[in-house]
Design a protein around this nucleic acid. Sequence first.
DNA 1: ATCGGGATTGCCT
DNA 2: GGCAATCCCGATG
Length: 284
Amino acid sequence: MRRTMTENKRKVPSRKANQRASEGELAVEPKQRKQDERTAVLSVCFGGGRNAEPSRRLGEDFFTQPCVALAKAFLGKVLVRRREDGTELRGRVVETEAYLGGEDEASHSAGGKRTERNAAMFMKPGTIYVYPIYGVYLCMNVSSEGDGAAVLLRSLEPLQGHAVMRQLRAARRKDGARALKDKELCNGPSKLCQALDVPRHFDRRDLASDPEVWLEDADVAAREGIVVEAPRVGVESHGEWAKKPLRFYIRGNACVSVLDKAAERRENPSNLRCQTLCNRTQKD
DNA sequence: ATCGGGATTGCCT
DNA sequence: GGCAATCCCGATG
């Protein structure tokens, strides 16, 4: 079998490692847990901490809006992952991309193309679309209004569960590699899937009603003027659609995966800075 | 059955 | 900042 021959040589995580990472065998060391709790307290302070509220979960109505509007609306909201042991992992969405379907050549659903893989893109708004990329990684999208349209989640600012996230991410890295900084835990579409333990089989689930993953409203919303609009990442080969500003991120947030300085200057020449939770609590 | 490319990441220079 | 790793999916014959 070819796989067993190459298994040992791989630098990228083996299938076994992936499985391990998603089964939650990883113990959290006491030291890290302590740090985790401290950060969680910070989040509550800065975030407003209205925990008494019945539920901040966003429902179907939220997801039922046009793709670009939803991609922007996602910014500042909090993605929550509840694992089997009850652990809740939280991250603020700081970077998204809109994939419109139809005319959008960079979309998996370009030209209305519908396959087994991308079926979730055509399902009701709020449906999760998880697909594998480059053989080893996953990306998570959420269906919006519009046929075949979906929003790619690109980056999160970790808010709760840093230690678990770090474990999940480290499981796929070289032994002895340096520990990841907080801002590196979820600063990429596949990194956030690893850190929040979002598995492939979440594909076609409903973000509005699923018990293991949901989206929460937050007190710190992305305000007008702090959202940068830039071309999407990694779609270079898709002609004029590659240039359209369909990527959105929170200006100044340290957890954004790829900055576009030119776009930032274009939108606000005065070099405005936005301090968000991430910047204040990141130590690097 | 086979083939080509990809909404990425991590490691090395 | 370059580039290899790695394999699934969809297209094609």
